[in-house]
Design a protein around this nucleic acid. Structure first.
Lengths: 144, 144
DNA sequence: CCAAACAATTTCAAGTTTAAAATTTTCCGG
DNA sequence: CCGGAAAATTTTAAACTTGAAATTGTTTGG
């Protein structure tokens, strides 16, 4: 027989996945329709905004929990669009730093405001108390 | 300035996304290494297991929150591997029913047991009380 | 009846994602 | 110094995903 607690954990996981996917879909649609961009692009810009001084490709893919190859192609496109710049490291010729361009920064700041508002709407029925509890639990669920 | 509550909701969302993506990565790896399969395939099998009598393609993509086109290609592959069967509807020639084959059922039952155990391990440090609270909140976050 | 709206599915093009292999460069023990 | 292990990144092949268009079939208002 299967442990009833593990069955409850499974049900919770399925529900968690459902909620997250639904919210992701909504935000993807929001970015596409309102801002003609995509979630992966937004994620990269957000990561580079948090680390204004620039990050290496490896750091970037670790931050976003995506593969190196994936980070490469998204950055390729953003670079072509002039939102992001690659700068070879002076000291280690293997590494490349990626950072927002002025245009990338400008665009992201617009995007971020709207995105925050949309997330606010999406989770409007979570009270301050809910957020406290939820945040505490999520912290404990994080990668140990 | 931006509403501090919406900022908290944003932080919560980022954390939620991180936890979910990390767990998804872990399970993807688990399915690949231990069972030589993928998450989307598993998701389709799981949906068909829950609805043993079969579902239409549209129902399937609604259940999984993926596009119709996506459901088509994953089902294509599973059909080629003999895990899933398509049966045209008698009454409406537009619709197709998808269901597990005997082999699909057999394979999924093995998979499901292992998967549940893995999810149990992943969230081992969530207590019964955590699950109560979390489930309640997730219900209220759902698409209402 | 019948044209038009609607519905279910597949096809398509473009982009995303992954894991593995390949490439280039650095580091290190002997 | 040198040969191999390790590191950072890119490339590659295959799978996944999406939204839109195309296809095929059903329904319905006039």
């Amino acid at each position: 027989m299967s442990d009833p607690l593990s069955k409850r954990r499974l049900k919770m996981w399925i529900r968690l996945l459902g909620v997250t996917r639904a919210a992701e879909s909504h935000l993807r649609e929001f970015l596409r329709v309102q801002h003609d961009t995509t979630l992966p692009r937004f994620d990269v810009l957000a990561a580079l905004y948090r680390r204004r001084e620039g990050v290496t490709m490896s750091e970037l893919s670790r931050m976003l929990l995506v593969s190196n190859g994936n980070a490469t192609t998204v950055v390729d496109r953003l670079e072509n669009d002039g939102l992001v710049r690659r700068t070879p490291s002076e000291t280690d010729r293997r590494t490349v730093f990626v950072a927002l361009t002025a245009e990338g920064l400008r665009q992201f700041e617009v995007l971020a405001t709207q995105h925050e508002a949309e997330v606010g709407r999406l989770f409007a029925n979570l009270s301050e108390a809910d957020l406290d509890v939820l945040t505490d639990i999520l912290k404990r669920m994080g990668p140990r």
